[in-house]
């Protein structure tokens, strides 16, 4: 048991606990804050697993940008106090069945994995420069597609926001 494995288990426990807390909170601001802790944990995990660039991007994009966006929307939308309506039983049955199948698959994957997967992994690190060179030499087309996707998402979000506003203005004129 090396120091790395101890760090791994601590981070894993932190992530599972904070994610579990996040999905059970009623107050969505608390949920967002717990989720930030969870994503910071996964950034640490990326550092541990030898991906420093991904760890930093995780902090910037996930824990920074996406969570702030969520916080912004949560504060913008006025949430009515939810009437305490229990979810129908069939939702829980569906969750149980899916979880059973899924967890069985994970355990099966662990059991049939080749013996090499049960040995501790050798630590390795991909420096950001190597990673960038690899990305732009082997995956340049995918990078272009991703940037196009981000552009389309930007335009789509803008269009959705503007169309909602235009409809509201028309309604205001008519009344």
């Amino acid at each position: 048991m090396t120091i790395y494995s101890i760090i791994f288990y601590i981070i894993a426990a932190l992530m599972i606990i904070s994610t579990g807390m996040a999905v059970t909170r009623e107050n969505m601001v608390h949920a967002v804050l717990y989720l930030v802790v969870s994503f910071l944990g996964s950034a640490l995990l990326f550092f541990l697993l030898g991906a420093p660039l991904l760890g930093i991007l995780q902090v910037i994009i996930y824990a920074g940008a996406i969570m702030v966006l969520f916080l912004f929307i949560v504060m913008m939308i006025r949430i009515e106090p939810p009437e305490r309506r229990a979810s129908p039983v069939r939702h829980y049955v569906a969750v149980g069945v899916i979880c059973g199948i899924y967890f069985g698959a994970v355990v099966l994957l662990m059991l049939v994995s080749e013996p090499a997967a049960r040995e501790p992994m050798a630590s390795a690190i991909a420096s950001p420069a190597d990673f960038g060179h690899y990305l732009f030499s082997r995956h340049w087309l995918a990078i272009e597609m991703i940037s196009l996707l981000l552009l389309v998402a930007l335009i789509g979000a803008l269009h959705l926001g503007l169309s909602g506003m235009r409809r509201r203005t028309n309604k205001g004129d008519a009344s």
Binding site: A12, P120, M121
Partner: peptide
């Protein structure tokens, strides 16, 4: 040496 890969799969 870190942890076995199966533990990472389990966490995921």
């Amino acid at each position: 040496m870190i942890v076995p890969y199966t533990h990472v799969i389990l966490l995921g």
